[in-house]
Design a protein around this nucleic acid. Structure first.
Lengths: 209, 209
DNA sequence: ACTCTTCTGTGATAAATGTTACTGTAGATT
DNA sequence: AATCTACAGTAACATTTATCACAGAAGAGT
């Protein structure tokens, strides 16, 4: 156990790992579970040790605009920021692949900042990388058209899973980009004609990426 | 002097105020100065004591997509995040009203986190509020059409200055929303017809906001 | 008053995206 | 095999936004 946490969070000091194991609680959640809702108060910081969580912004019409994914070794920046002030969450977090997470009560998250250098650095780095990721998202929707955003989206997915196949339906993609399925289908078809992808049912193979 | 800093940053402890005055350097910049560029390394954290700074994302075509404004009592979250790791900035910062800022060298910014509780809280609160602001921006461009975004934009401006007049040309607004002047003119005209605003040269009066 | 420049208004048109409606197809279920 | 359902393709049309072209109005400078 000590080993596995240390493997997933290699920068944590041994001391910190012990404290986390003492005070945090390991919990499992199934795919589909909503871990956090807009407007909900946050009581824990979440460290992901297994699985995948999708962080998104929900539109009034039920759109699920993707911000980013959280994977093992990462933590939810929003939960850290909010816990520090016990504020309301402004986003949604949904489990997309069964996860195991370490829940850290908010007081500890705050306390450790002073006591554990490696924790402090981890938190700051989490803020930084997530902020950057969100800025990149802003860039995309502010300056790019749907075809470019779609390409970027696919690239992100293949980067995340480390493979060249994206196993999603057009509808799922459309939802995350807040557009309609027809538009996604059209654009994907064009990409196929340009030789960028190969389309199968529920799967898109990226070719020249 | 002690007084004025304390007035602008009321939550800082007296001890912290003294340290800032010893180690920080007060600098003035004229409107139009670019304080930070995309890709630039950051060497200082910036506290605003006077004036107004615009934080924006620059498009390839020269668009200046507005993220938010920084005003007295606030600090640049990006500079804090980046200094902690001495990373590159991902945004642009331009002075829009002559400013006086307190520059804090990056090592101190980091050091004070451990030594001064009020500094730590200020930094965390800065992260939180900026993150939220950016999320709101994402919301707007992801889910709303241009007319709604324009209304939101105007409201933000009047909130920021505390008055009901926005002194900007249609072109300036268009640039910040990454659209064209004609579109802004047209939408404003419609808003005027709906009785929401009154249009003057270089000025928009908000009526029923 | 005249000139210049900047700002604003507006029509015409083009392009991108969203919507509706319908068809076909692959795989699952019976 | 027959049926059902989710997924995918595509045409036609509506809407939104962008672009082009031009004209008039306000204010600054001479």
């Amino acid at each position: 156990m000590q080993n596995s946490l240390k493997t997933i969070f290699p920068n944590f000091s041994n001391e910190l790992i012990s404290v986390i194991e003492e005070s945090g609680s390991l919990q499992d959640f199934e795919a589909g579970t909503i871990l956090m809702r807009t407007g909900q108060y946050i009581k824990n910081t979440v460290l992901i040790t297994k699985g995948k969580i999708k962080i998104y912004r929900e539109g009034e019409d039920g759109g699920e605009f993707l911000m980013y994914y959280l994977q093992p070794g990462q933590a939810c920046a929003i939960s850290m920021i909010c816990t520090a002030k016990s504020e309301k969450s402004q986003i949604m977090a949904k489990v997309v692949e069964d996860v195991t997470v370490m829940m850290i009560p908010l007081q500890l998250m705050d306390k450790w900042m002073m006591e554990h250098r490696t924790w402090y650095e981890f938190v700051i780095e989490t803020y930084r990388s997530r902020f950057e990721e969100v800025l990149e998202v802003v860039d995309n929707i502010a300056f790019r058209s749907m075809d470019e955003r779609l390409e970027f989206y696919l690239k992100r997915h293949s980067d995340a899973c480390g493979c060249s196949e994206v196993n999603l339906s057009h509808q799922e993609i459309a939802t995350e980009l807040n557009t309609s399925r027809e538009v996604v289908s059209r654009l994907l078809k064009k990409m196929e004609q340009r030789g960028l992808v190969k389309l199968n049912r529920n799967q898109i193979e990226l070719l020249h990426f």
